[in-house]
């Protein structure tokens, strides 16, 4: 029972394990099971009907595509930001580092209002963009923008510690052997960072699937155009179609869970191949 030389009372160990499993069950598993049961109750045919309803289908598709677009951008910009914070020294670095987490502290509705004020049709920038056919607010790009803001810290915060701890001897060895900067990054640095980038991306993706407060302010919420899954769920609950809302929730959650499991596997494989 005692691992790593830490003495364990087997009774304490058992109760801690039972306790944390129970806590997980009560906090996460129980509500999810209740949701699943209620969604499944009217039968597979009813479930299928709600799932293939064009409004539900479009909302789900929009939620996934915008979340994927956000992840693609975040994976690159987040890694670059972490890189800058770890590898460079410049005045105000500490302040910049502190700013990174701020998007978590801003109420999402405020995020939405702020984005509308900045890029909305009444702002100078938004008016210019609108006239040139690149309207952001009340269009799909606005949704991606809101998601980028609310998930901003995830990739940075998972890549940053890995970069800090990274042994630079490998990079130096590659440089000595004549590799250029780009090759070093691509062949030496990135493979080490990869699992961290995947973790950060997975977290931001899951977070994005359920995002409501900011998206509802910027999306425009037009059915079959800019209405996302969470807004669809809210509308169906308010108009008395609880089952339709639950079906869409279950689909969102299942996909989210599936992606987390797959990424978890990928990450573990990455860890193993790097001897971690």
């Amino acid at each position: 029972m005692s691992r790593h030389g830490i003495p364990h009372n087997s009774w304490t160990s058992l109760s801690i394990r039972t306790g944390s499993l129970l806590y997980l069950a009560v906090m996460v598993i129980l509500p999810l099971v209740a949701l699943g049961v209620q969604a499944a109750e009217p039968g597979p045919w009813a479930f299928w009907n709600e799932f293939t309803n064009p409004f539900a289908w479009h909302a789900l598709k929009l939620t996934f595509t915008t979340a994927l677009a956000m992840v693609a951008i975040n994976a690159i910009t987040g890694t670059a930001t972490a890189w800058v914070l770890v590898r460079y020294d410049f005045p105000g670095k500490g302040f910049m580092n502190a700013l990174i987490d701020l998007p978590f502290a801003v109420p999402t509705v405020v995020t939405g209002i702020m984005l509308v004020a900045l890029y909305g049709p009444t702002s100078t920038l938004g008016a210019i963009m609108g006239q040139s056919g690149f309207a952001v607010i009340y269009q799909v790009p606005g949704i991606i923008l809101a998601l980028l803001f609310v998930t901003y810290p995830f990739v940075i915060r998972s890549v940053q510690p890995v970069l800090y701890e990274m042994d630079r001897a490998e990079e130096e060895a590659a440089a000595t052997l004549g590799a250029d900067d780009w090759t070093i990054f691509w062949r030496v640095t990135l493979p080490t960072l990869w699992p961290a980038i995947v973790t950060g991306s997975a977290l931001s993706f899951s977070r994005a699937l359920g995002e409501f407060g900011s998206v509802v302010m910027v999306a425009g919420n037009r059915p079959l155009a800019t209405k996302t899954g969470p807004m669809y769920i809210f509308g169906e609950i308010e108009s008395g179609n609880r089952h339709g809302a639950m079906v869409v929730s279950v689909v969102l959650l299942t996909c989210s869970l599936g992606i987390l499991i797959v990424l978890n596997r990928l990450q573990r494989r990455g860890d193993e191949s790097h001897g971690r």
Binding site: Y138, G220, N221, R222, K227
Partner: peptide, 14 residues
């Protein structure tokens, strides 16, 4: 219609 808010009050605010 450019934007459909969740409530009448929010629509007014927009």
């Amino acid at each position: 219609v450019v934007n459909m808010d969740a409530s009448g009050r929010q629509s007014m605010a927009t």
